[in-house]
Design a binder for these strands. Structure first.
Length: 570
RNA sequence: GGGCCUGUAGCUCAAUUGGUUAGAGCAGAGCGCUCAUAACGCUUUGGUUGGGGGUUCAAGUCCCUCCGGGCCUACCA
């Protein structure tokens, strides 16, 4: 049977991620992983923190910590929040791991062996005051085109003109403000992606059913202008993976590190090795090497649209260029952005809701449900508090939560806290099963295809069907004339609760667990035949009436939160 | 500037890839139910599919044009 290798784009180490970041890769990846596990398939679900690059060095300096310490701390923080949102990674690794060092150096060595790496000399801006080379966007100055005085070295935000750092009038370091800048000669390694253009093009063409968002971005990079350009894969930084050619030194590259976008995707693979090292599994190569058993692996990647070029081109170039049989992605699911209340989520401006804050005010399931059922699949989508309140109150509290409540409380008052016996199913029950079967089939189809909004819609329809059934069968009336018939109805309804727990688990794992507990069952098997699945809890089986499964969000709360998250993060 | 995506009911989104009368949920209106978290069910009002032009037996879907929103543009990650 197909095994599923699933990776989520690895979040950058700096700071706490906002809900836009969460829904852009990790959360949908988790949904898919949980679903595939629930279907009984073998899954390896990997994610990690992306720890290298200039921003990490600067953030560490600002925090007054060595970069390694800073990253370790932030990894622990992000790891804890991931657990808080119930992200079910088999391993949450780090791109700074020893495994990634070794593997990144290994790939560089192979690429060099295959003639795909070239040393090039270039001139870059060096800041004496900062003691570092400055990436273009870390240089500010006056735009020669429009006179805007905070133009960046790569582009002027004001007039959108593309710039070179040397175009700027009165350039200064965006880090320290120092104007003590000079242009220095420095040598870097380039990955000759242009030589792999045709291979990559053919590979992209051979993919069917990838989202337009994914293939159009890849095609643009392949065919725009002079085609796919070679890419610098080293940087003059202290923190990172030292440039080595496999196990050997790389003469002339002393003191340099690999570019973060070269080593970050390799961490997907290295993370497998970390997973083994951590004692959570064995034989990571059977997931990653087609010569070592990965032929039956289906590899699915999840990411935001900004990550697509690196996953469709640079990383595959690394894998192809190595000449080794590494597993390549089979399906790449990319997402648009989630906006916040009329604007963008912004980490730098503290605008929007961040993962830690979200968990402070409501349990993970509330967020998971809203985010997943509104995931920006076809275009950017928007979070508003009104929409969030309505969705949570209607879908979770009224449709699902209240269903559980009305069934369990009715049973307790008429039959006690055990599944009642007697009676038999009739036409209404057959109709319900037929309807549920239809929705379940669609639900499974959408989940397999990773059509998340549609899957959420089907799941909701499955919940609604329970309420429709109760309304139509009216056990509260039937009970007065024919208690046995009412018993059969409620027995079915109690079984629906278990079924809902099983089917809903990928979306709302905590609530699902709570319902399973209330039904006092551990039978979480995915249903293949609903008639059978709705008899899993037999007459006489004891259950408990759960507390409110989902509480409602009041207007006052909504207003309070709206104010609290409108401005700067405190 | 270039490329790509996008605009559908008051709101959030669909529409089997050109094929009956453009559908759901929410909100609004009416009715029913009283087991339940004032919950649930049924019925129902909302659309010149951003504007204009074209191709076609047939256009939300394809083409042109205008208007609006977004993303990317290779040294942020």
């Amino acid at each position: 049977m197909t095994r599923h290798l699933i990776t989520s784009a690895i979040p950058y180490i700096n700071g706490i991620k906002h809900l836009g970041n969460l829904i852009g890769s990790q959360l949908p990846a988790d949904l898919f992983a949980r679903y595939q596990r629930a279907r009984g398939r073998e899954v390896l679900f990997l994610c990690a923190t992306d720890e290298h690059g200039t921003p990490a060095e600067l953030a560490a300096a600002k925090a007054g910590l060595p970069v390694a310490d800073y990253c370790k701390q932030m990894h622990a923080t992000q790891s804890k929040l991931a657990e808080g949102f119930r992200l079910s990674f088999d391993h949450y690794g780090r791109s700074s791991s020893a495994q990634n060092h070794a593997l990144t150096q290994h790939f560089a060595g192979k690429l060099a062996e295959n003639g795909l790496i070239e040393e090039r000399s270039e001139r870059q801006v060096y800041s004496n005051a900062d003691g570092r080379f400055l990436p273009d966007r870390y240089i500010e100055g006056t735009c020669p085109n429009c006179g805007y005085d905070k133009a960046r070295g790569d582009q002027c935000e004001n007039c959108t003109k593309q710039l070179e750092p040397t175009d700027l009038i009165d350039p200064r370091s965006a880090i320290s403000g120092s104007t003590d800048l000079e242009v220095r000669e420095t040598k870097h390694l380039y990955l000759l992606q242009s030589k792999l253009k045709d291979d990559l093009d053919a590979w992209i063409d051979s993919q069917t059913g990838w989202p337009v968002l994914t293939t159009s971005i890849a095609k643009k990079w392949l065919h725009d202008g002079y085609g796919l350009q070679d890419r610098g894969i080293t940087r003059d930084l202290d923190w990172g993976i030292p440039v080595r050619r496999g196990d050997a030194d790389w003469p002339g590259m002393e003191g340099k590190v690999f570019y973060v976008w070269f080593d970050a995707p390799i961490e997907y693979i290295a993370c497998g090795a970390e997973w083994v090292e951590a004692g959570k599994g064995e034989d990571w190569e059977r997931w990653w090497r087609t010569d070592k058993g990965a032929d039956d692996v289906r590899y699915t990647q999840f990411m935001g649209k900004d990550n697509v070029p690196f996953h469709t081109l640079s990383f595959p170039a690394t894998l192809i260029g190595s000449g080794e049989p590494w597993k390549r992605v089979d399906y790449l699911k990319s997402f648009n952005y989630l906006n916040y209340d009329g604007g963008q989520f912004s980490t730098s401006q503290g605008r929007g809701i961040f993962m830690d804050q979200a968990l402070e005010i409501l349990p993970a399931d509330y967020w998971r449900w809203w985010l997943l059922s509104h995931v920006p699949e076809s275009s950017d989508s928007e979070f508003t508090w009104e929409n969030f309140q309505v969705s949570v109150n209607k879908d979770l509290a009224d449709v699902l939560g209240n269903f559980v409540s009305r069934v369990t409380k009715f049973c307790r008052s008429k039959f006690g806290e055990t599944v009642p016996e007697g009676g038999a199913w009739g036409a209404q029950e057959e109709a319900l099963i037929a309807e549920l079967t239809e929705h379940l089939t669609a639900y499974e189809r959408h989940m397999e295809a990773i059509e998340i909004r549609k899957a959420a819609g089907e799941l909701r329809a499955i919940w609604v069907a329970g309420n429709e059934y109760l309304q139509a069968s009216a056990p509260w009336s039937v009970f007065k004339e024919d208690p046995e018939r009412a018993a059969a109805q409620i027995r079915l309804a109690l079984n629906l609760i278990r079924l809902y727990a099983v089917l809903s688990a990928p979306f709302i794992p905590d609530a699902s667990g709570t319902l399973m507990e209330a039904m006092r069952t551990e039978d979480a098997n995915w249903p293949s035949d609903l008639s059978a699945a709705l008899k899993a809890l037999p007459a006489g089986h004891a259950f408990t009436v759960p507390d409110v499964t989902f509480r409602k969000i009041s207007d006052e709360e909504r207003e309070t939160w709206q104010d609290r998250f409108a401005g700067q993060r405190t």
